[in-house]
Design a protein around this nucleic acid. Sequence first.
DNA 1: CTGTATGCAAACATTTTGCATAAGC
DNA 2: GCTTATGCAAAATGTTTGCATACAG
Lengths: 136, 136
Amino acid sequence: MTNTPQRRTRQRAAVAEVLAKLEEFRTAQDIHDLLRRRGDSIGLATVYRTLQSLAETGEADVVRTPDGQSAYRGCGQAAHHHHHLICRRCGTTVEFEMDGMEALVESLARRHRFTDVGHELELFGLCASCAVREES
Amino acid sequence: MTNTPQRRTRQRAAVAEVLAKLEEFRTAQDIHDLLRRRGDSIGLATVYRTLQSLAETGEADVVRTPDGQSAYRGCGQAAHHHHHLICRRCGTTVEFEMDGMEALVESLARRHRFTDVGHELELFGLCASCAVREES
DNA sequence: CTGTATGCAAACATTTTGCATAAGC
DNA sequence: GCTTATGCAAAATGTTTGCATACAG
């Protein structure tokens, strides 16, 4: 299986550029909107195709939002690498860091001969206010 | 917001029953198939509605599969609570346990006044064979 | 009886694909 | 020039919803 050589196109560059300055995960459609608003003319399908291809080569990370969309972020953007604690009722999100993780994931990956393992940890629970509201 | 009182219907019971004996997360459509194969006549929409309602009341846990489907499992089934290490290229999945997690999640939840916090941790990486294949 | 749950089909939202055209190499 | 990438619109996929009917309480 030979490495598919990608062509340098205006669109691909644009997607890569936007992706590179994204701090957070953004939906394919979000990215399409961003590009359009920036003045780049690009088709939605192309955005999808490009993001997919970038994800395959590891240049982008992907996660799934709780409502079922794919969200992308430039690889390496995981600057302060925080995770999310999300209320499954009202959607309130708290960012947090988890120091142990890095090491845990590392050793785990090594044990199973996996490389390049990313960890996007999303915890879903019930926030304080919603917990109150749920007391029947 | 009063607790919506659910009616005991044959369909709801059937879904709950299947869910109760599920060890792993299953897609709504999977569950629909299982029910049909078991001889229960039930509509797909009903399965979706029931699963959603069970998830809202906390009787079922939900996760998103990497390909964008919702997968359900009876709450409390988290018996040996393992996680998944998934190859983002070939899809190979390795189950693993992570002892530290329970405690970490617990303290984190408490710190932010969240309750009922579940942790489904899915790690995506590159398995040994795919890593080799990717050496360009 | 009253009203919620079901089933079906149609509606939806997101993502993928076919195909003709444009553009990289 | 040959071949891959793009754009558009149409198709596919997974899920939700409207509405008439069935059935639980």
